[in-house]
């Protein structure tokens, strides 16, 4: 075992279901302190990859190491340092919350005093104090998700795998869960799969986009956004009366690719100025404004949009191909 700051190391990971390659040669390293967002369209191989990381599925090829333990060779040690919230947060509906968490703690060999401490801690952390004696089956979706999170973190795992942790929750619940994830991120490696892009921006320090079993983009959310066509685009709102031919003027600026105009109801027009290859055009635009003396209501630079990047990278699927 070598000690490495990387808590998850994946090399050449593949999984074939018959002739179909669900995961096709993934390499990935996640160090402690990182919250990795796993992005991709449905069927891209997110869940399959996570199942292989947790040891539920055996890979067809490649290796996975969790905190130094090889998942294939030392599955029990690897699982011991790993917390997992499967897709849909499946739970035993007949068990009470307390019974269920107790069972998980028991299986994870948390005994005696420490068990009480840890249970109290996670119950407090995810806010389950009110429903401890209730059968899980009678709980609301939000509570169930919290129970799922609680079981995943009860043993203070160094690696946390969360498959769509906020799926199906209302905005308030999503917010709470994200807060929780951020709070836990400090020295752990957390992998979150999601197809909600705002979530990546909200909690992730790194995002990986996966499609057809392959990683097609990897970077911080900002880096990814930079790959959007809207990166460094400038939004400008001026009175329609002042700027009748503004479109033409803006288009003539250097580095401008194209300009779109939205007519707003209150007599203003909003222009979105898109640069060629994300060059900075803010200076040029503001110069033009000063030159023409437009009374500008708003003027700002767009950082780029993730969903745009996402669509751009995985757009081939829109033509109806599904897996």
């Amino acid at each position: 075992m070598r000690s490495s700051p990387a808590l998850i190391e994946i090399h050449g990971l593949s999984k074939h279901f018959g002739p179909f390659a669900a995961v096709d040669g993934i390499d990935l390293t996640v160090p402690g302190g990182e919250v990795l967002g796993f992005l991709g369209p449905n069927g891209a191989g997110k869940t399959t990859t996570m199942r292989m990381i947790t040891g539920f599925l055996a890979p067809s090829a490649g290796s996975i190491t969790i905190a130094g333990f090889d998942v294939a060779a030392a599955p029990l040690q690897a699982r011991q340092v790993l917390g997992y919230l499967p897709e849909g947060a499946p739970l035993y509906p007949d068990m009470t919350v307390a019974g269920f968490l107790g069972f998980i703690a028991e299986v994870r060999r948390i005994d005696g005093q420490r068990r009480r401490e840890r249970l109290d801690a996670v119950i407090d952390q995810v806010g389950l104090g009110d429903v401890l004696r209730q059968p899980i089956g009678t709980l609301s979706k939000g509570y169930k998700r919290r129970v799922g999170l609680a079981q995943a973190i009860v043993h203070e795992p160094r690696v946390l795998i969360l498959d769509e942790p906020t799926d199906g929750l209302d905005p308030n619940q999503k917010h709470e869960v994200r807060k929780l994830i951020r709070a836990m991120a400090r020295d752990r490696a957390i992998v979150i799969s999601t197809h909600i892009l705002e979530e990546v921006e909200a909690v992730c320090s790194r995002a990986v986009i996966i499609d057809r079993g392959r990683i097609i983009a990897d970077g911080t959310p900002d880096e990814l956004k930079a790959r959007s066509g809207y990166h460094n685009a400038v939004v400008l709102t001026v009175p329609r009366a002042q700027a009748g031919a503004a479109t033409e003027d803006l288009k003539d600026l250097p580095g401008v690719e194209r300009v779109t105009r939205d007519e707003l109801a209150d007599g203003y027009d909003r222009y979105t100025v898109i640069p060629t290859e994300s060059v900075s055009i803010a200076g040029a635009v503001s110069g033009l404004v000063r030159e023409r003396g437009w009374s500008v209501r708003e003027l700002y630079v767009l950082p780029g949009r993730l969903d745009d990047v996402f669509r751009k990278l995985t757009g081939h699927r829109q033509s109806g191909e599904a897996a």
Binding site: D130, V131, L132, R133, Q134, P135, L139, S140, G142, Y143, R146, D170, N172, Q173
Partner: peptide
């Protein structure tokens, strides 16, 4: 017995909804 125990902590049962 179970039901009575469950009802003891029922007050905030649907707090998250």
């Amino acid at each position: 017995f179970r039901i009575s125990r469950r009802h003891a902590g029922k007050g905030i049962r649907h707090a998250s909804q």
